[in-house]
Nucleic acid binder design. Structure first.
Lengths: 207, 207
DNA sequence: CAGGTTTCTGATGCTCAGTATCAGATTGAG
DNA sequence: CTCAATCTGATACTGAGCATCAGAAACCTG
């Protein structure tokens, strides 16, 4: 089993950084296996040993790829956060911050509407598993940190000044709206498009 | 040690519901001990056994009072949430929801400005300890649940309808502002009053 | 391509949070 | 006083996460 996984991973690599390539491949496979097992048995009903065994890795090694069990599912959000921050910074300066944030979130709405079933079950798991929900909020904090510099710039205030709470408040509020939209989207089984719910959520704050 | 704690707790009770009175007393003492130990050694640096030993309880019994280690510090927030929801519902209907929420939060600002040092160190611990921060967000979710019915009423929409994201968005955004204010308050060491920071934070959203 | 260095791996053992079980003690009600 | 319900400590278990170690693989360099 270990050998099988090893060989299949090796066969897929050839030219540039070898070590790094392996790592990326293994990471991806771990995420796949983890997502499958979690959807089959639930997050808490799946042990790290199970994932490690199925991937063909030892438990200890697995923890060298992902610091926590939750990270196996949530680490992708780090990249998503970067994409949102990038899209946000790319919006024209003529837009008000709130509007620009709304548009930046289309990175998410478009991705989710592209594979709704998958996105729905993923979000459902995120909302129904306490430990995942908790870590998810942590990730959102890192999203805030990524958004705040640009918000501060648009607001004309200096970032990293304690009493300037504007950027923090704005990013937090926007993400709260995003969460509200996502929650509603899951609750209605995707019947109403996520983008519409997000419009309503963020619209409520500026009505 | 066990006897000492037991007797001191018993001596303070006499007439009505005895069993329940004991329970409340023990709970309070656990919170006191936990807060002290956490501030001395940090949250992660303190084991549940330590707390149990100091209070004069077995580990198993301690977990019958508090389901998790975090709850020993955070369960008080449940009561705080109720007070905020109550204050919110008591605001006149003439106020816009956002304004009423701001006023309801004065329950917190006043309590915190009354014992700033204590509040500061408590918030600091909450923000610096990952596991506590995570659970803290969970508590905020329960705050949202407490606020949403009244928000829905003021907004004239029916609660518990999936596609009505307004109340969820509004409560989440308000709490995000509260968090932003609290973060800023801690960051500047309480130099700027919490109420002022909260005004700025929530004002940014309606400017 | 042969050397040494760095990095990764599996194995092992540990800490600690949280759960389950059980027998004995305490409380409260009839 | 007695019986039922509750609370307790003791014990043992699961599972996540950390630390350590020796061996193997991949990288650099001459």
């Amino acid at each position: 089993m270990t050998d099988a996984a090893r060989t299949s991973a090796q066969s897929a690599t050839k030219p540039p950084g070898l070590r790094e390539r392996m790592r990326a491949t293994v990471r991806k496979e771990v995420v796949e296996v983890a997502l499958r097992l979690f959807s089959e048995q639930g997050f808490d009903g799946t042990t790290v040993d199970q994932i490690a065994g199925e991937v063909g890795l030892s438990r200890a090694s697995l923890f060298r790829y992902f610091g926590t069990k939750e990270d196996m599912v949530l680490q992708g959000l780090e990249e998503t956060g970067r994409q949102i921050a990038e899209a946000f910074a790319a919006r024209p300066d003529t837009e008000r911050p709130w509007e620009a944030l709304r548009r930046a979130f289309d990175v998410l709405t478009q991705a989710n509407e592209q594979a709704p079933e998958q996105a729905l079950s993923y979000l459902r798991m995120l909302q129904e598993t306490p430990s995942l929900r908790a870590r998810h909020f942590e990730k959102q904090l890192s999203w805030q940190a990524m958004l705040e510099p640009e918000i501060a710039r648009r607001l004309g205030v200096s970032a990293d000044q304690p009493e300037e709470v504007g950027p923090n408040a704005l990013s937090g509020a926007a993400l709260a709206c995003l969460d509200a939209a996502a929650t509603g989207w899951v609750a209605c089984g995707g019947a109403v498009p996520l983008a519409v719910l997000l419009d309503r959520a963020m619209g409520t704050l500026t009505e």
